[in-house]
């Protein structure tokens, strides 16, 4: 019996973590043929990062194809593309966002002033702004589960008094806080159909390295030259 994809990816992840940060290059491959549109990845991401209403890192776009009786439905999960040439980072007036040596585009919540220029500059609408919403806003009390801290960027962010990440631009970071302790991103482990492949592009033995050489691979808005690091298998 062949090894489960998750087990293989865990091996890839462990190998990558043994290398210096600047020798890794995290990428994601999404096999659209396998996606059933259950949105479990979206929910896992919301849960992992304690995302408030209106903030989403990984929506699943749905598209109807064809005409009856020849119809189909396509599901396209859209995390941050972690572009190698990200248009969102150079526009930041205070250098609060940049591309890490391992390929992940990150935001410094403490430095971000909340001007939303990066949100405007992203060609994939992959950044959202945290306006300070709560699901239980119009109820007698904001529930404690909405105020517990998240651990993005390996820091504890308590949600209260308008403090960051409220007022900031937020985005998918491949669950960097999980990666650095040897765990795969939440969307990857949650997926019921093993749609997502995650790993180090610089490791020729990794699953992702093999998959991105597949002729079925395409990327969103490739013609823009942003060099997205999320690959789709058609």
């Amino acid at each position: 019996m062949s090894e489960d994809i998750l087990v293989s990816m865990q091996g890839d992840l462990n190998r990558a973590l043994e290398k210096p940060v600047n020798e890794r290059h995290w990428v994601m491959v999404i096999d659209l043929k396998k996606c059933v549109g259950c949105h479990a990845c979206t929910i896992a991401c919301v849960s992992e990062n304690k995302l408030p209403p209106g903030v989403v890192y990984r929506p699943v776009l749905e598209e109807e194809l064809g005409k009856y009786p020849n119809v189909g439905r396509r599901f396209v999960p859209r995390p941050c593309m972690q572009c190698d040439n990200p248009p969102c980072t150079p526009v930041c007036p205070v250098n609060a966002t940049w591309k890490n040596a391992d390929g992940i585009v990150v935001v410094d919540y403490d430095r971000c002033i909340g001007c939303r220029y990066c949100i405007v500059a992203c060609p994939y609408s992959a950044r959202t702004s945290d306006f300070g919403e709560y699901y239980t806003k119009k109820t007698p009390a904001i529930q404690p589960y909405e105020q517990i801290a998240n651990f993005e960027y390996e820091k504890k962010w308590e949600r209260k008094d308008g403090k960051s990440p409220i007022g900031n631009a937020r985005k998918c970071h491949y669950c960097i806080h999980r990666l650095n302790v040897g765990m795969l991103p939440a969307c990857v482990t949650t997926c019921i159909a093993r749609v997502n492949y995650f790993g180090d592009k610089n490791d020729p033995e990794s699953m992702v390295s093999r998959l991105i050489a597949n002729p079925r691979v395409m990327r969103l808005k490739e013609e823009k030259g942003t060099n997205p690091q999320v690959f789709y298998l058609l």
Binding site: V56, E62, L220
Partner: peptide, 12 residues
């Protein structure tokens, strides 16, 4: 991108 508005629904 087509389908963004219906992918995750919220007034924001």
């Amino acid at each position: 991108l087509a389908g963004l508005e219906t992918a995750f629904v919220h007034s924001r």
